[in-house]
């Protein structure tokens, strides 16, 4: 299942299980105004993996496969979006695996329709079952360190804390939680999922130490989706480089950049 991707500019690759990516941006496939717009955005984003949802086939009309509109080079990450219980998520995951012949899965169990906040308890229950069945599980969950540890203990390959509610575009609402998660779980693969609204939000998530960011609405609902996709690509790269470079400490008072000696009197 390994993919041979060219490493450009940097050896700073991003790994999930036995997959290696150069892009740290994972994007969704929903809410675009047209397939063509989605394709342009995907291309501009440089993303190598996209996520898709599982739904009943409509029986009253012939439907083409949505997957035909995706660049065949893209790795497909099926998700359990729309599931409200561990049971539904497990069934959906099994169907996705059968249809796509992939063990990859973005696990999502929603707890409430208004906030779309994840049901952490049901998510953990589903994760335990799916890991035992050989799935490579990437769970969406609240940005909580203890939950993160439990999901990793359950065998999840990566963890996907939210930045803000799904589709809200509010950006990282609790940077302290993400920083703590990064510091306490230095070896975990952390993918910030949901809530990013614009490029600076993605950069902040990366500066906080996220390994990657997954987004959909921020790109799909931008007036020019392809332009925003490119902005996200650059922001994620910038944020990653800033994180890797180790930022200067914050100080309350000024600290002169020019030498103090030799000023004319």
């Amino acid at each position: 299942m390994s993919t041979a991707l060219t490493v450009k500019e940097t050896d700073d690759v991003f790994e999930i299980g036995d997959l290696t990516f150069t892009s740290r941006l994972i994007i969704g496939t929903g809410k675009y105004r047209s397939h063509a717009e989605m394709q342009r955005a995907h291309e501009a984003s440089g993303a190598e993996m996209v996520t898709v949802a599982v739904r009943r086939v409509p029986l009253d009309r012939s439907s083409e496969s949505f997957l035909d509109y995706l660049d065949p080079k893209l790795k497909i990450l099926p998700n359990t979006a729309g599931c409200y219980s561990a049971d539904d998520a497990v069934r959906t995951a099994r169907l996705a695996r059968e249809a796509l012949q992939t063990d990859l899965l973005k696990l999502e169990v929603i707890g409430d329709q208004t906030t779309l906040f994840p049901d952490n308890e049901q998510t953990l229950e589903a994760a335990r079952i799916l890991v035992k069945e050989g799935f490579v599980v990437l769970p969406y969950f609240n940005d909580d360190l203890i939950m993160a540890k439990k999901l990793l203990d359950a065998g999840c390959v990566a963890i996907m804390p939210l930045a803000a509610p799904i589709g809200s575009g509010l950006g990282v609402q609790n940077p302290a939680n993400l920083r703590i998660m990064r510091e306490q779980l230095p070896d975990a693969t952390i993918i910030v999922d949901a809530g990013v609204g614009t490029a600076s939000d993605a950069a902040i998530a990366m500066e906080l130490g996220a390994d990657a960011v997954l987004m959909n609405t921020a790109i799909a609902e931008a007036q020019d989706a392809a332009k925003m996709a490119e902005a996200m690509k650059l922001a994620i790269k910038a944020g990653r480089l800033a994180y890797m470079s180790g930022r200067m400490p914050k100080r309350l008072y000024a600290s002169a950049s020019s030498p103090l000696a030799g000023v004319i009197k």
């Binding site: 929903g30 047209s34 949802a53 009943r56 099926p78 979006a81 729309g82 799904i166």
Partner: peptide, 24 residues
Amino acid sequence: VEIVHFVGGGSFGRIEKKMSVESQ
């Protein structure tokens, strides 16, 4: 019997508003 396929979506996804082939 449940028969499923894949549709556009990211997180949760308001898929009822998803694009149709016709709109494209």
